[in-house]
Write a protein that binds this DNA or RNA. Sequence first.
DNA 1: TTAGGGTTAG
Length: 800
Amino acid sequence: MTNDALVTIARNHSNIIRFCLCIIKPQNPVTLEPLDTGFGAIIQHCKELWQLSLSDLLTDRVFEYIRVHAKKLEMLSLAFPGDNHLDLHYLLSGVRASASWRLETAPLAMTVRSLWMPDCSVTLKIIEQLSKKICLAMAMSKISLRKCNGILSISFFHISYSSSSSSSSSYSRSCKVKGRVVLNFEKLKCLDDAVTLFHQMVTMKPLPSVVDFSKLFNNMIKMKHYSAVLSLFRQMQKLGIPISDFILSSMINSYCLMHRADFGFSVLPIYLKNGIPFNNVTFTTLIRGIFAENKVKDAAELFKKLVREKICDPDEIMYATVMNGLSKRGHTQKTLSLLRLMEQGNTEPNIYIYSIVIDALCKDGNLDAAINILNEMKQKDIPPNIVTYNSIIDGLCKLGQWEKVKTLFSEMVNLNMYPDVRTFNILTDGLCKEGKVEDAEEVMKHMVEKGVEPNVITYNVIMDGYCLCGQLDRARGIFDILIDKGIEPDIFSYNILTDGLCKEGKVEDAEEVMKHMVEKGVEPNVITYNVIMDGYCLCGQLDRARRIFDILIDNGIEPDIFSYNILINGYCKKKKLTKAMQLFREVSHKGLKPDIVTYNTILQGLFEVGRIGVAKQLFVEMVSTGPVPNLSIYHTLLDGYFKYGLVEEAMSLFNKLEKNKENIDIESYNIIINGLCKNGELDKAHTIFQKLSSMGLLLDVRIYTTMITGFCLQGLLDEAKDMLRKMEENGCFPNNVTYNVIVRGYLRCRKINEMVTLMKEMTGRGFSFDTTTAKLLVKEISENPSILDMIPELHTEKKK
DNA sequence: TTAGGGTTAG
């Protein structure tokens, strides 16, 4: 691949790739300084894009953070043993803090966690040192910063310290084979080990091979010390140690795993400078990184460019990466097209490719298509494996097609392929979601008999099953079994339990669980907080919900759209629309997008308090910049319009929907009929009601009840009663609401005899008066006590 | 003999 070609991609592409141009000078790329130039450009980029200056760094908020996070910073102090040993490096590590600054402690400090001593004077010293270091580091131009939507991320890490200061580690006992040191990377336990080994390696004579360095880096990546890998690589560059394509792709991968694919591109000029050709791994890694940031369009564009301009010849892995990236983000059709493209080209689809396509189709519930692909691959002599079967079984379970699940199970076993822990987990999950938790427990017994050990997911699934059907004690029991078995509960286990507790209104208990998980070293995530917030909102304790939201932010966790939806809903239910709107605006400022639920919640809230103008404005805004309105949104609008007597507006919207052949359902008609009745348009309502059956819609108890309510409202009790009889003839049985509505109708018209007749009928069917009816009855009796004598049942009740 | 790929749990 030529430099020109790369530059062409960069020029014609998105910001990320165009950013490459800062680094790759088309005229003479070889004269470029490698990474430093890259960093210089990145710093420039940060300054220009995020308008950051030194004074931004040393604000009160830093000190506030330091106060709150003194514990972490104290550890950090130990990472400042003296001058020259340390280098502060701010990196865009993906550590974010909203409303507060977050300092990621030095990995070195992590290793001295046990030495932590809380003491204010120490903290002050750190602040002093810290500010010096920050200036120093700035001066050294080794800082990169990120400020986006008011969020600043800083990550510290330790990039060089003397090897002599380190304690001897197990891996240092390396042996020599034919004069060359054999390094044991298996024994690396922590970052400290890795960094020490690196420093030993660079002083060895002869120098370890590039393969050894590569192994070291990959071990560090496995330990998730991405920024440290990049830092050591910089050291390597400075020392002039030879590098390879393997090392460079690991650097790109480190950036990508930090969710900074854009910086991944900054590695490309190092290839150029060292005369190392790009290969498929280079681009596959980048594509995967771009997908990881959900930039589907960018990733797909890059892939298309690479293919179209013959920059590389994609292999199965590159195809798999692109297809997986697309399919996991809902682009099943595009994934399928790529399969067909592969079939026409030189690269034969393999089992991985087919599994991706099959899984995507299954996730869409398109099991027929999935099974067709399964048969296609069988015909091509590519035997499906356990993964393929697991995907299909999962799809079938989710559709409740248990017979087909059985068929597939026996098909697998006939092929000598035995269900694994995932297969059983899929099965237990399917059963639990259908409420058959006892059957799921049977499956668990069965798997043990078959020698497949349940894992934390098995237990989580069953716990969730019991929570879903309100059997919280049983869920707790499963949790205890999990502990007894020596399986570590994970974040899901705790979240399921907190969710179960919150749904039962035991939010304080849920908070206890949260405390407990922290003690056990499992950090609550955004879902934990969301669940508890929702719990408090559900029981009307909005202040407590808000408190949880603030704690979430203080702990440096990014609220997601669910967090906002929960809180906005809480405020709307309490009719605090100003607060709700504030939060709604905050969503966009935080770089999140309001979703359909956000809009629906806030629209409902606005209509509830009568702020119709704002609601209309918001709908206009939604149509132009938000998600495509769905039926729920239209229902909210229709309901809102009718509520405030805006019949014409409601009907014109409704006619538009009908004309556009939107999927209007029985619920839509229910809203229309109810709205018309409440606005004195009974005839219009009845006309619409009458045409429903001929439209092929199945009338349900709700719509009959709405129509009956309409008749009662006008005092047309005979019509109401006729409707009651008619619905039964049509096989739709009245429920408690239906009877109560009609009873109230009779009561209002003082038709007590008729009411009593109906009352007998309803009690005979196991129904009873609801509170509204009971209140009305009391009111009527107080105004006209003679009613009492006409209700024999009530009379005897009273005597008792 | 060191780099990039597929399945589960809110």
